[in-house]
Each structure stands twice: as C-alpha cells, then as structure tokens.
C-alpha cells in the first residue's frame, strides 16, 4: 500500500468507524442527559396497546405513509433512497463474507450475474433518488429553507455513489480482491492485494473509501442523526 492509500483506506477507516459509533452514542447520551418534559402531547387517534404503538412506530418510521398523501414523488424517491441505502449496506456485506447460500444455488457465474444486477440496480436507483433530492433543493421553497449542510450531504452522497458505481460498472477489481482488502482491515493490518495495488481503478476505490469515511464521520453531527432520532419523534406521536 502506498502511504496515501494506507492513510485513507487504512487508518482513516478505523477513525471513521470509531467516530461514527462513539459520536452516535454521544448524541444519544446528549438526548438522555436532558430532562424529559412531563407534558405528553401525542396525536389522535392513537393505538392504545403497547404492541399497537410499536407497530405504528415501525410503520411511521420506515414507511411514513402520510407523506405519500401530500408529496407522492418525494415519498417514492425518499423510500427508494432509504431502501437503496439498506440494499447497499447488505450488498457490501458480501465483501466481508460470501453469501454462501445464494452462491451455492447460483454457482460462481450466476452469483456474479446476480450481484451485477442487484448491486447495479441499487446503485442506479440511489443515484437517481439523490439527484432528485439535489434538484429539489434548488427549487423554492426548499432552497429558502436550506442550509449549506443540506447540499453538502447530498453532494457527498452523490460522489460516493458515482465512485461506487464506477467501481461496479467500469472497475477491474473483483469481489475476491475486495474481500482480501476488507479482511486485512479486520485483521488491523490494512493492505491492498496486488490486483488492487496495480489496478487503474485503485484511486477510484481510495476516493470511494475517503468520501465514505467523511460521511461516517459527519453522520452523528449532522441531520443524518434522524436515522436514530426518528424513532424517538415517532414514539412521542402516540403518547398520552
């Protein structure tokens, strides 16, 4: 590994993961440090049982059905963005370990095809939805309300996606080599296998990892913390 790659795709990865985990924990601690107001002002109608509240919490937090009624386009793209996010997360798990169940069923060639189609689709869908959100931000009233953070995050995510899609569609690095790199990270001795080190797409990979690191570091201190806080907010919705 050259020194720059070692710094960015090695050291910084540990830093990013640590900041992400401890930062998120710290933000949650910050919430719990403050006294909760005893005023309870849920909305009606509300489920009466705890189970009902739980169901509603899950439904509201993951599917926000009421959004569809006022802005169907936004609802679809945001839903796609979040589902895509989960898809991308799951997809990247393959870089840790092969999904043996699917791989055994499909065979090597089949698995590669499968990954290309699913990963490719997710990558494109994510790019389209982020692009929609960016364009929307340039329109009133969204731009009147926007702060730099709103653009910065979207653009950062778009860059990560562009680089990721480049790796998927144009790169010459394959899953086995990525897995080797990830395993080296897990073993705390980050190194690129030869195929990556000598590949022309190495710098795309390093940039992808760099921008992803930045996103992880920024996550707890940005509005992305809504990923955690949404459960708190939506729980208040049904309390009395």
């Amino acid at each position: 590994m050259d020194w720059f790659s070692y710094l960015v795709a090695g050291i910084l990865v540990y830093v990013a993961v640590a900041v992400f985990l401890f930062g998120t924990a710290f933000r949650i601690y910050q919430w719990f440090r403050v006294t909760r107001s005893s005023v309870k002002l849920g909305l009606f109608p509300r489920p009466k049982s705890t189970l009902g509240r739980g169901f509603k919490l899950v439904k509201d937090s993951f599917f926000y059905p009421q959004v569809r009624e006022v802005d169907a386009a936004m609802w679809i793209f945001v839903l796609l963005l979040h589902l895509g996010g989960i898809g991308a997360f799951v997809g990247h798990l393959r870089l840790f370990n092969e999904f043996t169940l699917i791989a055994n069923a499909l065979g090597d060639e089949g698995m590669a095809q499968f990954a290309m189609w699913t990963g490719g689709t997710v990558g494109i869908v994510l790019m389209v939805s982020v692009t929609y959100l960016i364009l929307r931000r340039f329109k009133s009233p969204y731009k009147d309300l926007a702060i730099p953070e709103d653009y910065l995050l979207l653009i950062l995510v778009l860059v990560i996606l562009l680089l990721g899609n480049h790796l998927r569609f144009f790169g010459d690095i394959h899953v086995a080599e990525y897995r080797e790199y990830i395993h080296s990270l897990l073993a705390f001795s980050p190194a690129f296998p030869e195929a990556i080190a000598e590949s022309s797409t190495k710098w795309v990979l390093v940039s992808h990892v760099l921008t992803a690191n930045l996103l992880f570091i920024y996550f707890p201190f940005s509005k992305l913390i809504h990923a955690v806080g949404t459960f708190a907010g939506n729980l208040i919705r049904s309390e009395v």
Binding site: R27, W31, V34, Y142, H226, G229, T230
Partner: peptide, 30 residues
C-alpha cells in the same frame, strides 16, 4: 427538554410540512 432537543436535531428540512400548513399554502410565504 428532551423532546425539544430531538426536534432540534432530527429535522432534515424536507419541507413535507409545507403542504400541511394552511398558512403556508394560502400565502406562499416561507
């Protein structure tokens, strides 16, 4: 208080609320 702090932290300024408020809908004033 904790509730207010959640609200301060989690708004993404998505502005879905714009179509919910009769005052914004009728005046168009941000």
């Amino acid at each position: 208080n904790r509730q207010l702090l959640y609200y301060l932290d989690i708004c993404t300024r998505c502005s879905i609320c714009k179509d919910a408020c009769h005052q914004y809908v009728t005046t168009g004033d941000v």
